[in-house]
């Protein structure tokens, strides 16, 4: 479980996060939604310490992260897997080397065991056999999936996915959603997913946080998001006519 308490973050005069509190539960897929530029990625980066927060507390299973010395942070980070919005693959390494990298740095696996793990992860993202390509030779969607494979290679306790299915076709998108859900339930991971894909919000969102105007404006489950009449969230999530119809139908079922 990750707890975020009263976190604020500004860049110069530009306040991005203003007193955000949220708790992300273990064994659940915690979703963050919000309009572009509202600070979702910044929030995720604050939680993992890539941005220092101006104010507030962050706890990983009761471990105070904000005041932690850097070597302890480094230890804790070995329990984190993160998918960056831009994939952030190491472009001097092949797909295989990318996924193997955290293993070769921190695991006690033999070469053979590492390779098995790499192939297993590649299979889970439907990219078996693409070991020797370089990131530049992969499509955007493939890069995303490779980055997911790298994020789950170490069996992380905390999994962050920044827009895991942007740029993916609907089928692959569902595959990735399912993968994230399986991993979360199977390994009791604390998973945080930032997404613009309302399909995945409703499908896999056990716990949804809506970031709006630098605050955690609304939170609840995927059932509650259908039920709520909060105008900001209804306008955001169910913006299109299509989604409005879906909302009507879902509300009938409840």
């Amino acid at each position: 479980m990750i707890e975020v308490k009263n976190v604020s973050k500004s860049f110069g005069k530009h306040t991005v996060l203003n007193d955000v509190s949220a708790s992300f539960e273990k064994g659940k897929v915690n979703v963050i939604i919000g309009a572009s530029g509202q600070g979702k990625s910044v929030l995720a980066k604050c939680i993992v310490g890539l941005h220092e927060v101006d104010n507030g507390h962050i706890e990983f299973d009761k471990r105070d992260f904000v005041n932690m010395p850097s070597y302890e942070r480094r230890e804790l980070r070995k329990e984190i897997g993160m998918l960056f919005q831009g994939s952030a693959l190491f472009d001097s390494m092949t797909v295989e080397e990318n996924i193997m990298f955290p293993l070769s740095m921190f695991s006690k696996f033999t070469k053979k065991e590492m390779l098995d793990r790499v192939n297993f992860c590649l299979e889970r993202v439907n990219l078996a056999g693409r070991n020797n390509l370089f990131p530049a030779e992969c499509s955007g969607g493939m890069q995303k999936r490779i980055a997911i494979a790298r994020a789950i290679a170490m069996n992380p306790k905390y999994l962050f996915c920044d827009e895991p299915n942007s740029g993916l076709d609907p089928q692959t998108s569902i595959l990735i959603d399912n993968l994230i859900r399986e991993i979360t339930y199977e390994f009791n991971t604390t998973t945080i997913v930032i997404t613009h894909d309302m399909n995945s919000v409703i499908e896999i969102g056990d716990n949804i946080n809506f970031i709006y105007e630098g605050k955690n404006w609304w939170q609840g489950t995927s059932k509650e998001i259908v039920k709520t009449d909060n105008p900001e969230i209804v306008n955001f999530v169910f913006a299109s006519e299509f989604m409005k119809k879906i909302r009507e139908n879902l509300r009938k079922d409840l």
Partner: peptide
């Protein structure tokens, strides 16, 4: 700028 350094840091690499 492509966040590869962030990716290293997140893995716990100095």
């Amino acid at each position: 700028v492509t966040e590869q350094i962030d990716a290293l840091e997140i893995m716990g690499v100095n």
